[in-house]
Nucleic acid binder design. Structure first.
Lengths: 213, 213
DNA sequence: TTCCTCTTCCCCCGATTGCGGTATTTCATC
DNA sequence: GATGAAATACCGCAATCGGGGGAAGAGGAA
């Protein structure tokens, strides 16, 4: 089996060296590099593309979450495992939105570190039960339920509605869709009637809330 | 230490009995009941309130996710651990939205079952790395980033904007806020200027997307 | 063929909005 | 006491929107 190639970003010298020894010294793992900051992030990844990046959230210069965004933009197949001493909502939230797959604490044991690296590499998202709880709870708060109702909008009406959501005026929609102003107005009237609203803001708000478009 | 009280809902007789023996036979765990369906769900919970409910998603009669909603509505402090053979997005999504804390597969080993029960009871959300990945990925798709920008809206402007998002017209906002029509118009103008938009739908759309209100 | 839906287009008219101003009062800060 | 931000309020005017009609072609279903 091919060894899992790991790149390490960690500003703390002691931890960086400990992890380096752990990773390079364990069969099945290969360290492609250990860096104290993200200054030459993309260059370093290009040099030898790792399977997994182990990223500290708190670092001098570029924040870990910013670095993740860059990585996922240029190397979407690279799996990123965040490590941190904090487990506040903001950090978890930012990391996940940036594209990180796993999120572990620095208090994690060496064996669990390796296990977590293996997990992300195999397509999992290792995280402590506590962090998982935060994610689940953030999730339940943020997710909106897509359209329980079916408002029976026709394809053209959906198209018009989605342009309305983008903030376009009737005139702009007419231009964009290459149909006449009056036709757009007719569609809009029908949309209002089907959504049971009577102005543009209500329609936009309802469309976004219920993810109709 | 107090034993963790567990109620079990599982229609498969064999699995139900195996889990019953496992739970009641392990020190630190106490089985308050094992039921093949959710017909008398609330009655059964009332009889002896468990700390943790182990719920099968696939059951005759009431679906597991529906049952979870009922449980969390009447007994919000009860922790629910879902168990299933499926790990599709829809089931995961429904369970989390219903209020379940953990989500494990029936292929989980007895020791891990007990560990997961312990985890949910201690405020964690045990889930396999694969399921965690699905949650993270669903999350990243659904969550919108709350205002990276700070548009410096004043409290009154935020109030007006939130009423606009609710679909209210300027006249309605004036009535609701008990200020004059012209004042609301002034606020709206300032909001447009700060958000860099120039019509009501754009403002509403931006406000919702960036969770400004 | 007839019926129905979807899409297209048009008119009228009152209400509302967007944009340009100006102006006063309050209130905290300097 | 001066300054500035926030909230309040008003006017005018062009443009857009919302609601009310009517109408006609294309295409599928009964």
């Amino acid at each position: 089996m091919q060894a899992i190639k790991v790149a390490l970003f960690e500003d703390n010298k002691h931890l960086r060296e400990s992890l380096s020894i752990l990773i390079s010294g364990t069969p099945g793992f290969q360290l492609t590099g250990a860096y104290p900051d993200c200054d030459e992030l993309l260059y370093q990844l290009n040099k030898e593309l790792p399977d997994v990046v182990l990223m500290d959230i708190e670092m001098p210069g570029m924040r870990g979450t910013e670095a993740v965004k860059l990585i996922k933009k240029d190397f979407p197949e690279v799996q990123v495992l965040m490590q941190t001493v904090f487990q506040d909502d903001e950090n978890i939230f930012q990391s996940i939105c940036a594209g990180a797959s796993g999120y572990i604490l620095k208090t994690t044991s060496p064996a669990q570190y390796l296990e977590a690296i293996r997990d992300v590499h195999q397509g999992g998202s290792p995280m402590s039960p506590f962090i998982a709880r935060r994610v689940v709870s953030l999730f339940a708060q943020n997710v909106s339920v897509p359209s329980l109702h079916n408002y029976q909008l026709t394809p053209k009406e959906k198209e018009v509605l989605s342009l309305m959501v983008q903030g376009k005026s009737i005139k702009m929609i007419a231009d964009a869709s290459d149909i006449s102003y009056e036709t757009v107005r007719t569609h809009v009237k029908n949309i209002y009637s089907k959504l049971h609203v009577n102005c543009n803001t209500e329609a936009v708000s309802k469309a976004m809330r219920e993810k109709i478009v």
